Amino acid sequence: MASLILVRHGESQWNLEQRFTGWADVGLTARGIEQMRVAGTALLSEGIELDVTFSSALSRCIHSLWILLESMDMVWVTQHVDWRLNERHYGALTGQMKMRAEERYGTLAVKEWRRGYAAQPPPLDEAAREYVNLDQRYAGVPARDLPKTESLSQTVGRVSKAWVEAIAPQLLYGRSVVVVAHGNSLRALTKIVEELSDAEVGQVEIGNGEPCIYDINAALKATNKRILMQDIKSPSHIL
């Protein structure tokens, strides 16, 4: 039996400010750092031993993973950074406060972009572009694969490739795998693992720093699930 542990990064500064973050490289708050320490301690108390780890290419996830591993005294565990686990790309919404976006585009439109499965926000514009730094970490990625906006459906599509090519093979070897990613990329993995419908996945809520532990059998099916809840809560939505 393999183990898959999904953990949303600790609270970021834009989570705190209720801004659409997406591919913007925003750092953790003090509360976010502490959330990841608590998450690591909780996993250690559960007797979890890790074999391999994955994170998105965004700093808030990489930093969160480092804190998690340090808290578990497992900094030596192999770490893979995979851009396909990045947060959903919010296009022109990137950097906007939720309230301001609702004033500009209308509450119903913003709700559909946040909760709908196929709806895309407007593509990246000049104002949002300054927040999205396509630097050396994306050097090997074909330009056609780098989005300018994404629906949740498209996010599921790219995360599915990471699942098939990178994560699932580790689970088939019976390994204990942790994935530190984002609200929407973890929604995508939850959809895959739990075989959720398109409608169901949009309603999935994932708290910062709350490990979700699955027991995974040889058919890559989840046979058990438990969530280690945080006492240090964030008011952040998945934005």
Rank of each mutant, 00 (worst) to 15 (best):
M1C: 03
L4H: 02
L4G: 03
R8V: 00
E11A: 06
N15L: 05
F20D: 04
F20Y: 07
G22Y: 09
V26T: 14
V26G: 03
G27L: 11
G27V: 04
T29D: 05
G32L: 09
G32F: 02
E34H: 08
A39G: 13
G40S: 12
L44S: 15
S45P: 01
E46D: 15
I48V: 15
E49S: 15
V52F: 13
S55C: 15
L58Q: 11
R60I: 11
S64A: 04
I67D: 00
L68V: 04
E70D: 15
V75Y: 03
V75P: 01
V75T: 15
V77E: 03
H80K: 07
H80D: 03
D82T: 06
W83C: 09
E87D: 10
A92I: 07
A92N: 07
G95P: 01
K98C: 11
K98V: 08
Y105K: 09
A109E: 12
V110G: 07
E112I: 04
R114W: 07
R115L: 12
G116H: 00
Y117F: 15
Y117C: 06
Y117A: 06
P122C: 10
P122M: 07
P122S: 14
P123Q: 13
L124G: 04
L124P: 01
L124N: 04
D125N: 15
E126F: 07
E126N: 09
E126S: 11
A127I: 08
A128E: 05
A128Y: 05
L134C: 09
D135P: 02
D135M: 09
D135Y: 07
G140Q: 06
V141F: 05
P142M: 06
P142A: 09
R144S: 11
R144V: 05
D145L: 12
L146Y: 05
K148V: 14
S153F: 02
V156Q: 03
G157R: 00
R158A: 05
R158F: 06
A162W: 02
I167R: 01
I167E: 04
A168W: 02
Q170N: 08
Y173V: 02
G174R: 02
G174Q: 02
R175E: 03
R175T: 04
S176T: 12
S176L: 00
G183I: 02
N184E: 05
S185M: 10
L186K: 01
R187L: 07
A188Q: 03
V193C: 08
V193I: 15
V193N: 01
E194S: 10
E195Y: 00
E195S: 14
S197G: 14
S197M: 12
Q203S: 13
V204M: 12
V204K: 09
E205N: 12
I206P: 02
G207L: 08
N208R: 09
N208M: 08
E210V: 01
I213D: 01
Y214V: 05
D215Q: 12
D215G: 07
A218L: 11
K221P: 07
K221S: 11
K221I: 11
A222I: 13
K225G: 07
R226Y: 14
I227P: 04
L228P: 09
M229F: 14
Q230L: 14
I232G: 12
K233G: 08
K233P: 03
K233F: 10
K233E: 12
P235Y: 10
I238H: 15
L239C: 14
